[in-house]
């Protein structure tokens, strides 16, 4: 989770959507390669996530056992010499029970030649997993799950956090005191640990994982929004609204909320990557999405069992997907933050 960064309380002037786009574009030019890369990855991931049912070549949850553990398409059939041992642990070992199936008269310590199947075809581009399911289809559907988790957790967390933060910052006094002490309790735990605790208390499933992450997330937004509204509250236009006789809820809605939204959106963009990572983490340890759902965290968890056996592709590609998504969202978040921060914005606007 990212720490609360400093933001200008208010853009000094009203910023229209086109100006925003221009700022982002200038940011792209400034850090051309990184931001271009991140936007490319994000478009790719969001696109595949949205279109998953139509573009994925196979059903992500059904496979044929005869296709199990096929390597990626570019690895063809080959032969290898393996040592016969009690239990095969590394790529150059084979267990005695398996070896006996190939050749009935082997004994421990023999070296035998084994034919390793390649997928040999472009049928399974990224290979298959232990149940013969197409890895590419699973990763495409995993993008969908990750995006749903990230948007729902940040939506729920941001909504709770913003509402509570507005109340704390605007009303102050004991309301502020109570709310801030509650957030302190949440912030006292490392976020992932708290999410693990909540998820395991609620029971491991997709919905509870989302709830657990949202519950660990809101205090950060509360802190951010509170700080913003605290300083906004002292501004003359709020006092002017009081002087006119506008009631508190209308002041919050009309004068404070629009002015805290920018930093909240920036923070949310920065947090998407972390939310995806946390969700994958929960799934990895079995507290999030459950098999057979195609979730990146679940796929790594299963895939790690086969890495030592030489089937590295099952865990690697889902890990790569998480890594690229989190990285791309963080880079985009940096870009958005720079675009929103008047100090890094440049003087030409």
């Amino acid at each position: 989770m990212t720490s609360t960064a400093e933001y200008a309380v208010l853009a000094p002037r009203r910023v229209s959507a086109s100006v925003w786009a221009a700022r982002l574009l200038r940011g792209f030019r400034r850090r051309n390669i990184l931001l271009g890369f991140s936007v490319f990855i994000l478009l790719l991931i969001t696109g595949t996530g949205i279109l998953a049912p139509w573009i994925s070549p196979y059903d992500p949850t059904r496979g044929k056992l005869e296709n199990q553990k096929l390597p990626p398409a570019w690895i063809g059939e080959r032969t290898a010499t393996k040592t016969v041992v009690e239990f095969g642990q590394s790529p150059d070992q084979i267990s005695i029970s398996k070896a006996k199936r190939l050749k009935s008269d082997v004994v421990l310590g023999d070296r035998i030649e084994v034919v390793i199947r390649g997928s040999g075809r472009t049928e399974f581009l990224l290979g298959t997993d232990h149940l013969g399911r197409d890895m590419l289809s699973r990763i495409i559907h995993g993008a969908r799950i990750s995006l749903i988790i990230a948007s729902v957790t940040l939506g729920v967390g941001g909504l709770i956090g913003t509402t509570v933060g507005l109340a704390a910052g605007y009303f102050g006094g004991w309301v502020d005191e109570v709310i801030m002490r509650v957030t302190d309790v949440f912030l006292a735990f490392p976020p992932l640990l708290l999410a693990i605790a909540i998820a395991s208390a609620l029971g491991p499933n997709f919905f509870n994982a989302i709830l657990a992450i949202a519950l660990t997330w809101w205090p950060w937004y509360t802190r951010l929004v509170r700080a913003q509204s605290l300083s906004l509250r002292e501004r003359a236009f709020i006092e002017a609204a009081h002087g006119i006789g506008v009631n508190d809820l209308t002041i919050i809605r009309r004068h404070i909320l629009p002015n805290v939204l920018t930093p909240v959106l920036v923070q949310a963009t920065l947090d998407i990557g972390t939310a995806i990572l946390t969700a994958a983490g929960l799934s990895f340890i079995g507290l999030g999405t459950q098999p057979p759902t195609a979730d990146w965290g679940v796929m790594i968890n299963i895939g790690r069992l086969f890495v030592l056996g030489g089937r590295w592709w099952i865990a690697t590609f889902s890990g790569l997907a998480i890594f690229l998504t989190a990285l791309a969202f963080n880079l985009l978040g940096d870009g958005v933050r720079d675009a929103a921060d008047p100090r890094t914005r440049g003087a030409d606007l």
Binding site: R14, A236, F237, E239, A240, G243, G245, R254
Partner: peptide
């Protein structure tokens, strides 16, 4: 009741750029 009475008494502040919401 005070909010209601605000129509009778109003205030103009020193700096109009800070007493007018910049987003409105």
């Amino acid at each position: 009741a005070l909010r209601h009475l605000r129509r009778e008494m109003q205030m103009v502040f020193q700096n109009p750029f800070s007493s007018l919401n910049p987003r409105m």
